[in-house]
């Protein structure tokens, strides 16, 4: 148990510094997004990773200082981390399924990946089957 009876009062400059850092990081993430890091590094994910690192840094600053997690009872921090852990499990296990189900059973992987052509989708495909002959060839029905 904690024995302090006074609430922690964060100094004004800490709030202003954190606010300034958040505004600065926002500008940085916008500017970096205009640089094609993927092309420079020859990968597909560098821009995304950089954007997520900056977002996570901003989120950490908000949680620790604005939400007082750095000063408060650590059980609140534990609660937040438990939520994030659940979210990570949710994302990772779902992605294992959607990305690799085709490797376990090739037939099940197919119908979801192969969707209807770009500017069409199922309802409209039905409609155009009746109205025009030219489009009926290009539309495939997703299961």
């Amino acid at each position: 148990m904690t024995h302090h009876h006074k609430h922690h009062i964060t100094p004004l400059w800490v709030y202003l510094a954190i606010g300034g850092a958040l505004l600065f990081l926002t500008v940085v993430t916008v500017l970096v997004s205009f640089v094609n890091l993927n092309e420079i590094t020859g990968t597909h994910t560098v821009n995304f990773i950089v954007a997520m690192i900056i977002a996570t840094t901003k989120a950490t600053l908000v949680a620790l200082f604005f939400m007082h997690l750095i000063y408060d009872n650590k059980f609140y921090l534990f609660t937040l981390l438990a939520g994030i852990l659940c979210l990570m499990i949710f994302i990772v296990i779902t992605m294992f399924d959607t990305e690799f189900r085709g490797q376990v059973n090739p037939d099940e992987g197919r119908p979801i990946v192969e969707q209807v052509p770009s500017d069409r989708f199922i309802e409209r495909a039905h409609h155009e089957d009746h109205s025009s002959e030219t489009h009926s060839e290009t539309t495939t029905h997703a299961e």
């Binding site: 937040l80 939520g83 659940c86 979210l87 779902t94 959607t98 990305e99």
Partner: peptide
Amino acid sequence: LLTEILLFGGVFVAYAVYRVW
């Protein structure tokens, strides 16, 4: 707030799946 993270988490998962597809 934990449940709020999971509420938005559902849509974030949808985002991740469809973005990869």
